[in-house]
């Protein structure tokens, strides 16, 4: 799976990608080379603050690169206009570390936000898909529940569900097991593995505990840091 970069059916391809942060000089990590095909899982790992989140954001053009090229769902990210970039992001499920749930919406509205925004389905279809996603991820009944009633684990599950609801070909997860104990993290990763095998979704994730993530297959890609830099 890691290089060579030959496959034209790759969902995501990183070709020598590195990124930098404004306050730091030089790239955050050594150039990344890998590609993801349908059903693949790549888990990036590194110590905190060493570039996992920026590496993920580069996939959707939300992080400036210092080198290399990202090809996501057949589009070369650096060539896209802001509108085309938004259109690409609608086809990718991205779950940030914070979950990114909107505090002014209840849990159900957060879960269904993307589909309602994209006006891609009828109300009945959205409800049906929401029920299905809740079952797949083990989310309980959301009816009438505000955001404040959900704990950290539930919020993260809903954030994953929100990204997964339109069944994107690529799901990008920034530390989905953050703050979970080992049992809860293992359960989460097994549910994500089921999504991969059942729907053929490709997943790119960052995790500080890659061994848990890789129990049901996948590739571990530790970010390499140039100590001299």
């Amino acid at each position: 799976m890691t290089s060579p970069l030959s496959g034209c059916d790759a969902v995501l391809r990183y070709n020598g990608v590195s990124v930098a942060l404004p306050r730091l000089q030089g790239p955050l990590f050594a150039p990344l080379h890998f590609e993801l095909r349908p059903g693949d899982l790549v888990v990036l790992s590194a110590a905190s603050g060493k570039g996992k989140s920026p590496a993920l954001r580069a996939a959707i053009g939300a992080q400036p690169r210092t080198s290399g090229e990202v090809v996501c769902l057949g589009e070369t990210v650096s060539n896209l206009s802001p509108q085309a970039l938004l259109a690409l992001r609608r086809r990718v499920g991205f779950v940030p570390l914070t979950g990114g749930l909107l505090s002014n919406l209840n849990l159900h509205d957060n879960l269904t936000l993307l589909w309602r925004y994209h006006d891609a389905a009828t109300r009945a279809q959205i409800e049906e898909r929401a029920r299905e996603v809740c079952e797949q991820l083990g989310i309980g009944d959301l009816r009438g529940r505000g955001l404040a009633t959900a704990n950290h684990h539930e919020r993260h599950l809903i954030a994953i569900g929100r990204a997964w609801l339109p069944h994107p070909a690529l799901l990008i997860l920034d530390e989905p097991d953050f703050g979970l104990d080992d049992d809860a993290a293992a359960t989460l990763w097994s549910r994500l593995a089921a999504l991969r095998s059942r729907h053929g979704a490709a997943m790119l994730a960052a995790s500080s505990r890659p061994s848990l993530a890789l129990r049901s297959g996948g590739t571990h890609l530790p970010l390499q840091h140039d100590e001299a830099a």
């Binding site: 954001r57 938004l86 992001r89 086809r91 991205f94 990114g100 936000l113």
Partner: peptide, 9 residues
């Protein structure tokens, strides 16, 4: 940022 990353303007 989360909205932007999800393709919502």
């Amino acid at each position: 940022d989360a909205l932007d990353h999800a393709g919502i303007d």
